[in-house]
């Protein structure tokens, strides 16, 4: 078994108005930072997974995202997966 750490980013689907992002964008503009646009606010989830390999870890993660961590009606997600270096090998 290997240990992986995952970083998951969850955002509202593009078709849904992100009112938090819009409010933050307006705040940036009011701070005289007009160059910012398309601000989107989301969620960041970190977790560790035990799995035989990266493919198995990804499959577990996708199941968790589809079932609990995100709601596909309103959210999209993507993640990165990194194998945690075993302490013994150091």
């Amino acid at each position: 078994m290997k240990t992986f750490t995952a970083n998951i980013t969850v955002t509202l689907r593009r078709a849904i108005l992100d009112v938090q992002g819009k409010a933050v964008e307006n705040a940036l503009h009011s701070l005289h930072m007009p160059g910012f646009s398309d601000v989107r606010i989301g969620k960041h989830i970190e977790l560790s997974i035990q799995a035989t390999d990266a493919e198995a870890a990804s499959a577990q993660l996708r199941e968790a995202c589809d079932k609990l961590l995100t709601n596909p009606v309103m959210e999209d997600y993507h993640f990165t997966l990194n194998e945690t270096a075993a302490v013994e090998a150091a």
């Binding site: 849904i16 108005l17 009112v19 938090q20 409010a23 009606v73 309103m74």
Partner: peptide, 17 residues
């Protein structure tokens, strides 16, 4: 009920926050 899939759609943050 929406999360459970018994009703369609979802309820998200109010437009005015």
């Amino acid at each position: 009920l929406c999360e459970a899939g018994l009703l369609p759609g979802a309820l998200i943050r109010n437009q005015h926050l």
